[in-house]
Design a binder for these strands. Structure first.
Lengths: 203, 203
DNA sequence: GTCTATAACTCGATAGAC
DNA sequence: GTCTATCGAGTTATAGAC
C-alpha cells in the first residue's frame, strides 16, 4: 500500500501554503494561517521551510507552471492553424476553470518582483509561442489568412482566455450575474472565443 | 490666484497614498511609507484619516473610477457600432497608458473583498454596457453583423484592451521584449484591436 | 495642524523541552 | 519531528506638547 503523497507533513504544508498564498498574496498571508490550515504550529513550519520568503518562492514557482501549464506541445505541434487555435483555447480554459485564481496571483506577484526573479521560474517551462507565431506569419504570407501581427494575435488569444478569470468580480458586478450565470458564460466562451478569432483572421 | 489643490495636506496625503497603495497593495503598503511620500509624519496621517482601512477605501473608490473612467458616454452614444468600437478601444487604451498599474491593483483588491464592498464604489460610476449590448443584438438580428452573444463581444473587447497592462511582465519575458518594444506593441494595439474585432463580426 | 514619543499589537522567527 | 513559550522587529495607532 503506497502512502498518499499529501499525508506527509511537507505535503500538508505545501498544500496549505498554496491555498493561503493564493487567497491573500505574499504580503497578506500569515505564517500562522498557513500553520493552522496545515494543522500544525508555526515552529514546525519553520522547521520545514526556513522562512516565509523561501516557502513563498517554492509555491510561486509551482504555481507559475500551473498558470502556464504544459501546453507548449500545442504551440509547437504541426496542427493546422484553424485547428490549433481552438485546441489551445479549449485546453487552456479547461485548466483555468480548474485553477481560476492562479492567473491573478501569479501576475500580481510578478508585477512587484524584479524580472530577474522569475527567470528561474521559467526554467524549462517558458511558453514557446515562437513556432505558432511563425506559422501565423507563414499563413499570412501565403494569403491563407488576412495580414496580422503574429504577436498581437497571440496576445489577443491569451487575453480573451485569461481575462474573465482575473476580472470575474468586475464582470459579475457590471453584468449583474450570479455564480451560475458566470459559469455558463465561461462555458460559452470555450466555443465562442475560437470562433471569434477564426472569424477575424480567415479570408 | 487660486491655490493648487494638491498643496493642501489632505491632497498630499491622497496623492502619496494612491502611489504607495498601487505599488504595494493594501497589505504591503506601510503608513510610514505614505507619510514619507507625503512629506509628513504618521501622526498627521492618522489625524486626517483615522486608520489605514479608511484611507485605503478612500483611495480604492477613487481608483475604481479611474479603472473605469467616464467612457459610458461612448457606450451610450448613438454612434454606429463600427465607429463605437474603435472609439472606445482607443480612448480606453489611452487612459490605460496614462494609468497602467490601476487595473491590476483594482482587480486584485476586488478579488479579496466581498461583493458588497464595491457596491458603493460603483455608486453612479458603474459601466453601463447595456445600450451597447442592445445595439450589438439589434445589428445581429438585422443581419448587419454575424450572430454573436453581446456579452461575449463586450468581454472580448475589454479583455484585449486591459490584459496587456496586467500581463506586461509575462509578455515581456515570454516575447523577450524591453520597455521600448513593449511601448510599440501597445501603440500598435490601439489600431489592431479594433480591426481585429471588426473583422470578426462584419459580414 | 503638526510634531515627538511611545503605547499596543502583530507577526516572523528561535530556544529548548519532549 | 513536533510542541510550547517567548523574543524581537516592525507597524498601526494614540497621547500629549507646541
Amino acid at each position: 500500500m503506497v502512502k498518499k503523497k499529501d499525508d506527509t507533513t511537507e505535503e500538508k504544508i505545501l498544500n496549505a501554503a498554496k491555498k493561503i498564498f493564493i487567497k491573500n498574496g505574499m504580503a497578506g498571508a500569515r505564517m500562522q494561517d498557513i500553520a493552522d490550515e496545515a494543522g500544525i504550529n508555526k515552529a514546525l513550519l519553520h522547521y520545514y521551510f526556513k522562512n516565509k520568503e523561501l516557502l513563498f518562492e517554492n509555491i510561486f514557482i509551482k504555481l507559475s507552471t500551473d498558470f502556464w501549464p504544459r501546453l507548449n506541445f500545442i504551440f509547437e505541434s504541426d496542427m493546422p492553424l484553424f485547428e490549433k487555435i481552438p485546441t489551445f483555447c479549449n485546453l487552456y480554459m479547461e485548466k483555468l476553470i480548474e485553477n481560476p485564481y492562479i492567473p491573478l496571483f501569479v501576475l500580481y506577484e510578478m508585477n512587484r518582483r524584479p524580472a530577474q526573479f522569475f527567470k528561474k521560474m521559467f526554467a524549462g517551462n517558458a511558453p514557446q509561442p515562437l513556432k505558432l507565431m511563425n506559422q501565423i506569419e507563414a499563413e499570412a504570407k501565403a494569403g491563407k489568412i488576412r495580414p496580422i501581427h503574429p504577436s498581437q494575435l497571440v496576445i489577443n488569444m491569451i487575453s480573451m482566455c485569461i481575462f474573465p478569470f482575473i476580472g470575474k468580480p468586475m464582470i459579475m458586478a457590471v453584468m449583474n450575474m450570479n455564480e451560475d450565470q458566470f459559469r455558463v458564460l465561461i462555458e460559452q466562451r470555450k466555443k465562442d472565443v475560437p470562433i471569434f478569432i477564426i472569424e477575424s483572421i480567415k479570408k
